[in-house]
Design a protein around this nucleic acid. Structure first.
Length: 487
RNA sequence: GUCCCCAUCGUCCAGUGGCCUAGGACCCAGCCCUUUCAAGGCUGUAACGGCGGUUCGAAUCCGCUUGGGGAUACCA
């Protein structure tokens, strides 16, 4: 089913902590839908729960979406014709609609205290009653009538009056016909004057001209509440899309407590490339654009995007494929770009290096580390030996222990062979040729044995990027100094 | 408890009644390449939860069952 053009989609996170990976997951497809149809992608901030607001998290939402290249066309940050885009700034709109529903008899005031509601709930659960829910104690009563009864609160909320025939099915773009439970007399306007999600989402999606109400699967069961409000207000329904829920390895809904990768920032902190992450997320519950390959750009996704291709099963977020994708994206970078990204990453995570020198060395080393990197985070331990002063190079214990017994002779021969090279002719090729002639042919050693001490002298480690290229980056003098030092 | 959603290799997807002795990607294993580690190439292991239907024929349709998930808030 292809919806009409152009689409206006929206992502609506709550600023209640570090941005959630689910926000990016939804944003990818929202944006794809909007771009494909020439529409707009809107960011709305759902800050209706005053108690849960976290300072700075709204800014983090902007930052992470920008980092991913998923910046909205309209948002509190950049503005737009349908603002304000922050729900806390739209209170009059919600109050007006609530009053309208009150006047029409579709909603009523409720003065019950939270304590009474909690008791009621406890009783219902204990009695094994099939349906739990509000008992309509306040329905039909005036304030003064209700005040005489126990469990009275001075500040009322507004509840919706669910009729006997509420809509219990709707059409979902990726699921088709969906059935859902009969709603309770849900609170739509809280005692503090803020709306609940149910009122706010309907009012905002309508007023902002949103064509696709995209959200997580957990909202299916409350959709009848929204359908009811649309009906009462006589507003046209948007397309509903309930995306499958991202899962932990144990299949539960992905959460920050269980899974560090539930935090969007985690990927950035750990050296993942945003384009790789977008690629990875676009593969969850959604088939790859190209047969036989999982590598695809966002533009390719846009070109072939279709809500109907979604799978309805909640995918486990398994980082194995992301690691591979990230490596593939790193390998595709130019040396210069990789150097720039690595140094920028070090700057972000506070790795203390001289930026200019580091950029020069890392760009030089790019060809030899590129195919060894999974994330940008892997770069530092791979090239730190190229950045450290010769006399500060640490020889790791396991490398020292693995040194063959002929080490002194090998190092002596290596120093002699490399020292004999002309200063302007010291390259990876000449160094390799000289060492092979001297150590492998001359001393009759296996390459594996012959180059072991040399590698340790140069890098301080048993495992390092390619040896001869590393020596070329260090240069003849520093190479000789390190060989001498270990000897 | 009640309601809703979901069900193919370890993971992510393909498969919409015959092209399926179920295909791809990642992971894993083996081999090749090789100065270490990678990358790359080749090969391989591995799944339709179960039971009943419908049909000439079912991974695909239906029912039941089992399993997982979600919702049942003045949180979203």
């Amino acid at each position: 089913m292809t919806p009409p053009l152009p689409a206006r989609t929206r992502v609506a996170p709550s600023p209640t902590g570090d941005p959630h990976v689910g926000t990016a997951y939804q944003a990818i497809f929202d944006l794809a839908c909007a771009r494909q149809t020439g529409g707009q992608f809107v960011l709305r901030i759902e800050d209706t729960d005053q108690a849960r607001q976290v300072e700075g998290s709204e800014q983090q939402i902007y930052d992470t979406l920008a980092w991913l290249g998923l910046s909205p066309d309209e948002s509190p940050e950049v503005g737009g014709p349908a603002g304000p885009y922050r729900q806390s700034e739209r209170l009059p709109e919600y109050a007006a609609v609530a009053q309208q529903l009150l006047d029409a008899g579709h909603a009523y005031h409720c003065w019950c205290t939270p304590e009474r509601l909690a008791d009621l709930r406890k009783q219902q659960e204990a009695s094994k009653q099939a349906d739990t829910g509000y008992d309509r104690r306040c329905y039909g009563l005036t304030r003064d009538e209700r005040a005489k009864l126990p469990g009275f609160s001075e500040k009322p909320v507004v509840r919706m009056l669910v009729p006997d025939d509420p809509p219990l099915t709707f059409t979902d773009l990726i699921r088709g016909e969906v059935a859902c439970p009969r709603p309770d007399d849900q609170v739509i306007l809280k005692a503090d004057g803020f709306p609940t999600y149910h009122l706010a989402v309907v009012v905002d999606d309508h007023l902002m001209g949103i064509t696709h109400t995209v959200r997580g699967e957990e909202w299916i069961s409350s959709t009848p509440k929204h359908l009811l409000i649309y009906r009462w207000l006589g507003w046209d329904l948007p397309f509903f899309v309930h995306m499958p829920l991202l899962r932990n390895a144990d299949k539960s809904k992905i959460a920050k407590r269980k899974n560090p990768a539930a935090r969007l920032m985690w990927f950035r902190e750990n050296g993942y490339l945003p384009e790789a992450l977008v690629n990875f997320l676009s593969l969850l519950a959604y088939p790859p654009v190209h047969e036989g390959s999982d590598i695809q750009s966002f533009d390719e996704l846009v070109a072939s995007f279709d809500w109907g291709k979604f799978s309805t099963t909640g995918p486990v977020v398994d980082l194995g494929k992301l690691d591979w994708l990230n490596g593939a994206y790193i390998r595709a970078l130019t040396d210069d770009e990789l150097g720039a990204r690595i140094v920028a990453y070090w700057d972000e995570v506070g790795q203390p290096v001289d930026a200019v020198e580091a950029r020069r060395v890392v760009t030089q080393a790019a060809p030899i580390i590129k195919e060894r990197l999974t994330t940008l985070r892997d770069a530092y331990p791979m090239v730190d030996f190229l950045l450290v002063d010769d006399d500060l190079l640490v020889i790791e214990d396991d490398a020292r222990e693995a040194l063959p017994e002929q080490t002194p002779q090998i190092l002596a021969a290596a120093i002699k062979a490399l020292g004999a090279l002309p200063g302007d002719g010291f390259t990876a090729e000449t160094a390799e040729a000289a060492l092979r002639a001297s150590l492998v042919d001359g001393l009759g050693l296996k390459p594996r044995v012959a180059f072991n001490p040399v590698r340790t002298a140069i890098s301080g480690r048993k495992v390092s990027p390619p040896l001869f290229e590393s020596m070329a980056i260090l240069g003849q003098a520093r190479t000789l100094a390190r060989l001498q030092s270990l000897k």
